[in-house]
Design a protein around this nucleic acid. Sequence first.
DNA 1: CTGTTAGCGCGTTCAG
DNA 2: CTGAACGCGCTAACAG
Lengths: 347, 347
Amino acid sequence: MRMSNRHRRTTLVDVAEAAGVSLATVDRVLNHRPGVSPRTMERVEQSLVRLGYRPDPAAVRLARGIQYQFCFVLPTGTNTFMSLLAAQVDRTLMSLAEQQAYGDLLRVDVFDPYVLADTLRGLIGRYHGVATVALDHPVVRDAIDAMVEAGMVVVTLVSDVPNSRRHRYVGIDNSAAGRTVATLMGRFSAQRRGPIGIIAGSLALRDHAERMFGFQQVIASEYPHLHTLPALEGRDDTQRCRQVADKLLAEQPDLVGIYSVGAGNRGIADALEAASRARDVVFIAHELTDFSRRYLIHGTMAAIINQDPGHEARSAARILLAHCTNQPVIADQERIRIDIFLRDNLP
Amino acid sequence: MRMSNRHRRTTLVDVAEAAGVSLATVDRVLNHRPGVSPRTMERVEQSLVRLGYRPDPAAVRLARGIQYQFCFVLPTGTNTFMSLLAAQVDRTLMSLAEQQAYGDLLRVDVFDPYVLADTLRGLIGRYHGVATVALDHPVVRDAIDAMVEAGMVVVTLVSDVPNSRRHRYVGIDNSAAGRTVATLMGRFSAQRRGPIGIIAGSLALRDHAERMFGFQQVIASEYPHLHTLPALEGRDDTQRCRQVADKLLAEQPDLVGIYSVGAGNRGIADALEAASRARDVVFIAHELTDFSRRYLIHGTMAAIINQDPGHEARSAARILLAHCTNQPVIADQERIRIDIFLRDNLP
DNA sequence: CTGTTAGCGCGTTCAG
DNA sequence: CTGAACGCGCTAACAG
């Protein structure tokens, strides 16, 4: 379909004419390059704003011919959520290529702060930007600051390092997530009183700690009919979680609910089903996977709290690119939601 | 930061050399233009795939110099959600301009099918694509089909016309949303028995009808301790909703919950608070607004089911653009979630 | 049927 | 300090 052009963008040529200078001069003031007299500079700037000049991103990209190199650093291991995230990062990297940006996906032992820090430092000079699932540890913080110092764009992914100089955190507010679980738990178990079991991956992980903090805060203040048992360590492992859950169920005949803070949900679900207490115990966990989806549909899980790995991967990439080309970030679009899934609103 | 180019995209020149033809010929087979002998055509196509050629979107846009004209058709009226949507459409149109696409925002009386249909037909030939909040009516369907017939890209927004030839529906699955509300209602009111009030905007609106259908389906089959009262019409109007809710509360002393299917939630919340039954009645409604947010935080509302108007606006724009430039659509990214908001996971 | 060539809007030498 | 000119990858006239 052919259609008249109702709008004509103002181009650099327009600005140059209006200011009575050449194209190159406008370009100099635009990109803050030296070699322009204050007088002409002012003239150009005025025409710039007067004509409302906005650079054409496509032309800029084409002319610069720059390729951006990004690196995504994810944990090793077979955690289902991380696999989903890795898959989404892969897909994102493919479509990034359309915009002359290329990325690598590195998997390292994120849980060893020294290994992670060394890996990150090794990235300096080789990439324009890095997105990393980080561990909140002084050594890692230093490495992140060093990357930023070296001019790289850094975003933390899923797990933040709050006091570092990273440009942005792409992930959910974990204490809010914990509070959300608590409210669901409290309302789903209305009129019942009793204990709630908490099974976390590691009590030392910042995000797990924050989730528990938020959870306990709300349970304590809003739902006096419930009380939380001391948190158990399931180490994000199915086997281990099964054992822990078995023991919990045996010791707590009047258990009202279980909050699984980390991974290993399959073990907990199996324990609940084996004990025939799936309908009885309100079981809430994180991350939508093939397994957790099934448990939700079958009623073993009451709800799933999720962060969308696809959104996170794309968001991280968009933010890296935006910072490199200094384009604005649409905050609204990049905010990662705390999704609540019931069997009815599954995607 | 300067960095070696590790990747060099294969360009049209590479393909032309490999196939032993000129640039123009490659372009012809690429864009399915006539005037190429079958033999050369095949040769070119082979090199095309062999080299894995992917056009550079930026260069294409620049060379074509085409501007796309889009039109968003939204309802008139002061419905809060539609205002939010309109605001987001405005923002989206601004950033669309970066990509040489321009859009207008039209507000018409969507609830008159003839007015809407005439408006849509009037758009033919003036826009490349249209996103419309549609009314499911034969006349409207015809108009949509006529637009598609004329080569326009059409997406329905928020409210669908399922049997039309629209390229895509951008919005939530309303019966799933109704089911989601029912599950929340059922679980939040566990151990209680009694009636649930339903207040809809109009019983004739497709999306409201679908929400109610999903809601009643789940309540009837899963939560026998509850039963739904006949749906009341609040006409999406605060005053009217207040009256309806007042009456409902007076007549049903043991009311367990209220499901507000449409707008006018302020009236219902006021009625609940005036009757001091806000803590007692599980009140669930749609769409996050400044008001509903406040009610949720204060505990008058138990939950809000939301569709993100910002996401919907951006998604519609991306889809229109993608269809025009025939680029792929990332289904995952464009799926509009049924958001569940509790006071704890508000954005 | 096929090749040549002039831009699209901008960045970037290289001369003045 | 400033300007002219070429090229990025691709499209579209225009020749042949």
